[in-house]
Design a protein around this nucleic acid. Structure first.
Lengths: 372, 372
DNA sequence: CAGAAAACTGTAAACGTTTACATCATCTCG
DNA sequence: CGAGATGATGTAAACGTTTACAGTTTTCTG
C-alpha cells in the first residue's frame, strides 16, 4: 500500500497514447483525413468497408476527437456555462443537480463558475467562457440590466435565473417569491400570531427583497402592525439565522413567529431557539422558504415554502437548449416557478396539511406560469 | 412587467457584437494580427504606442479571445474536468466548493460532470472532455484499476479522489475512513454500548467498505460481538438511513447505538427514531460520518467523524495543478485526509468535547498524511 | 456501349489563435 | 559611413478538426 511507484515514465501495457489525432487514424487506415472524419461522423458518406477499417483503426489507437478543435470549426461546443452566485448549501447544490442532469441528458457539458457577480468578476467569467460555451445560465440575484447590456454579447444565448426582472433581451426564470412569502405569512397570521418577525436575505438581493415585500403585504392585509424591530437583516446563511434569532429574543416583546427568508436561516434560528431553551413551535413558530430536502429532517420538521429547486435548474437548461435550437427566435420567455406552502410541525398548525396556493384562481396544471 | 419585448432582433445601443475576432482588432488598429496578438499578450514585444492603439481597439470592439482557438495552439485550456459520482447532498456540494474555489483562484475553470461511473459512462465522459481540459479530478469510490488503464490516456494528469487505492500511476487522495470509523465506534463502546449497529454505505463503494472495516475492528478490539443483524445495508442517502433505522427497531433486541456511515443516513435515522417515539441519545445513541455543516444544526446535534470536506476538493485541485506544472514528474503522491471525532449531543457523552484521534502517535502538524 | 448519374474519396480551405522566422528600419559604434 | 545590433512588425505555419468542392471510379440507363 505504501509502496512508492516506479518513478520512471512508462506507458502501461494496453494503456492509451496521449495525443492520437485523426491524422494518425487516417494514416493507419490508409485514407485521407477527410474520409476518416466522415467515417467517424457522417457514416453514410463512405463505403461500408472503409468505414469499418477507419473505425477499427480509431478504436485500436484509442482515438478521441479533440473537442476544442472540433468546436472551432463547427461552432458548437456542446457545453453550457453556469454562473452561480455561490456553491454553498443545499439550494445551489440542488439547482446544479437539475442543471447538470438536464444538460447531460441532452449531451451537453457544464462549465460552472461561482462568484458573487459584480461587474468586473462577471466580465472576467464571461471572458473566460468565450469560445468554450454555446450559452449561459446566469443566476445572479444582484444582476442589473446595466451590467447585462454592457457585458453580454448581443444575441448570445443566456437564460437568467433568479435575476431581477428587466427588459433585457433574454429568457428568464424566477421563483414566485412574493406569493410564496405572502402565503407563509398569511398562514402564520391565520394561526393567530400577531408579532411575526422576518429574517431577511442579503440587502440588494432580489429574491430577498421580493420575499420581504410578500411579508409586508401579508401583514398589511391581515391588519397586523409591522414594527421595524421585527425585520432583521440576514444573508441566507445558517449563521445569520442563528444570530438573527438571538437578536429577536432580546426584544422587550419577543415575536411569537419567525419567517426566515430561506430554510438555511430557519435552521440556524431553530438552533438558537433551542439553545435559548425555547420550544418550537410551542413557544415560538418558525417558517422557512425553499423547502430544501433537509427541511423534512430537522426537528421540528420545517414548515416551508416549497420550490421545486432542481426543476429550476432543469427548466433553465431546457430554455437555454431551446434557444440554442432556434438562434433566430427573438421572443423572450419569462417563466415563474410557482410555490406551495408545505406545513410541517415547526409552525404549530394543528395538522400538517398542504395549503392551497395564494391565488388558486388560475387552475394551472403546470406549476410554471408563462408570461411570454 | 408582463410586457412582451420587441420580437425584432436588434443590437442594443452600446451592446456587444457577437463575433469579433482578433482580425477585426488588427484591422481596426491597422496592424497585422500577429502584432495585435502580441500587443494583447506579451506586451513587451511591441511599441508602446501600437500596443495602446491595439488595446484601445480591442476594448472599443469588446474583443474577447476565443478560448477554444487559443487553447488549440497553446495546448492549455486552463480548465480542469471534475467527475463526481453524484451531485446530491452537502458532501458533494462542499467538495465542489473547495474544488471550484481553488481552481478559480489559480485562474482555472471547471467542467463538472456527475455520473455513477461505470466503464462506459466514464469513457463517454472522458471522451467529451478530451481537448477541453488540462487534467482531471476523478472521484469514484467504485473506480477500479482495470478501468483506469483502459480509459485514461497514459500520462494524462489525473487526481483520484476517494478512489480505491491501486497501483495506478496517478496522485490520489483519500479520507481516513478506517481510522475515523474505528474511533467513532470505540467512542460509542467506551460510553458503555454493547449493541452497536451500523448503517453501511452502498455495496461496492470503497469508502463504505473501509468504514465498515473500521467498525468491525473497533468492535473486535472492544471485545464486543458483531452479529450480522446489526449490519444493515444503506446507500448514503437520508432515505436509506430512515429505512435502516426502522429495520433495526424491529429487532427482538434492539441496538443501543447506531453508527451511520455518513451524516445523511444519520439524519435520516434521527427522523425514524423520532417518529418511533424514541429519544436520542437517551434511548439510543447515534453517530455519523463526514461532519457535514448540517450536523451541527440537527437536533440533537450530531456526533460525527469530522472531515474537512471542502479541503478535500482544495487539495485535489492543488495536487492536480502541481502535476500540470511539472508534467514530467512521475512520482505519485498519496495523501490521506485525517479525521477527528467531534462529539455532540447525539451520542450521549456527558460533555461535548473533541476527542484525540485514534493514533495520536504521529504528532502531525498538518491533518494531511503523505505516503509519497 | 456511350453518357450520365451515383458513389466514393481526396485536396484544400476554414475556424481563431500563437509564434518561429523573415523583413525592414533605425540605431550604435568603430 | 558601413556593419552589425536592436527593435518593431509582418508572413506564414501550426494546432485538430469539418466540409465545400473537385476528382475518380463505379453503376445505371437507354
Amino acid at each position: 500500500m505504501g509502496r512508492v511507484p516506479d518513478p520512471v515514465r512508462y506507458a502501461e501495457p494496453g494503456s492509451v497514447e496521449l495525443t492520437v489525432t485523426i491524422k494518425d487514424v487516417a494514416r493507419d487506415a490508409a485514407v485521407s483525413i477527410a474520409t476518416a472524419s466522415r467515417a467517424l461522423n457522417r457514416t453514410d458518406l463512405v463505403a461500408p468497408q472503409t468505414r469499418d477499417r477507419v473505425r477499427e483503426a480509431a478504436a485500436r489507437l484509442h482515438y478521441t476527437p479533440h473537442g476544442g478543435a472540433r468546436s472551432l470549426i463547427t461552432r458548437r461546443t456542446h457545453t453550457i456555462g453556469v454562473l452561480l452566485p455561490d456553491l454553498y448549501g443545499e439550494f445551489f447544490s440542488e439547482v446544479m443537480r437539475g442543471i447538470d442532469q438536464t444538460a447531460q441528458r441532452a449531451g451537453f457539458q457544464c462549465i460552472v463558475s461561482s462568484a458573487r457577480h459584480s461587474g468586473p468578476t462577471l466580465e472576467a467569467a464571461l471572458r473566460a467562457m468565450r469560445g468554450r460555451v454555446d450559452g449561459l445560465v446566469l443566476m445572479s440575484p444582484e444582476f442589473t440590466r446595466e451590467l447585462s447590456t454592457r457585458t453580454l454579447p448581443a444575441g448570445f444565448p443566456v437564460v437568467l435565473l433568479n435575476c431581477p426582472p428587466s427588459e433585457t433581451p433574454h429568457d428568464s426564470l424566477n421563483i414566485e417569491n412574493y406569493d410564496g412569502a405572502y402565503s407563509m405569512v398569511r398562514h402564520l397570521a391565520g394561526l393567530g400570531h400577531h408579532r411575526i418577525a422576518i429574517l431577511t436575505g442579503a440587502a440588494g438581493n432580489f429574491d430577498a427583497a421580493e420575499r420581504l415585500r410578500g411579508y409586508r403585504a401579508a401583514l398589511l392585509d391581515a391588519g397586523l402592525p409591522s414594527p421595524a424591530e421585527l425585520v432583521v437583516a440576514g444573508d441566507f446563511s445558517e449563521a445569520a439565522g442563528e444570530a438573527g434569532a438571538r437578536q429577536l429574543l432580546q426584544l422587550a416583546e419577543r415575536p411569537t413567529a419567525i419567517f426566515a427568508a430561506n430554510d438555511g436561516m430557519a435552521i440556524g434560528a431553530l438552533l438558537a431557539l433551542r439553545e435559548a431553551g425555547l420550544r418550537v413551535p410551542e413557544d415560538i413558530a418558525i417558517g422557512g422558504f425553499d423547502d430544501i430536502p433537509m427541511a423534512r429532517y430537522v426537528d421540528p420538521a420545517l414548515t416551508s415554502v416549497h420550490v421545486d429547486i432542481s426543476a429550476l435548474g432543469e427548466r433553465a437548461v431546457a430554455a437555454l437548449l431551446s434557444v440554442l435550437g432556434h438562434p433566430a427566435r427573438r421572443e423572450f420567455t419569462r417563466e415563474t416557478a410557482a410555490t406551495t406552502l408545505v406545513v410541517r410541525r415547526s409552525c404549530g398548525a394543528r395538522k400538517a396539511e398542504s395549503v392551497p396556493p395564494v391565488r388558486p384562481s388560475a387552475a394551472r396544471s403546470s406549476p410554471w406560469r408563462e408570461v411570454v
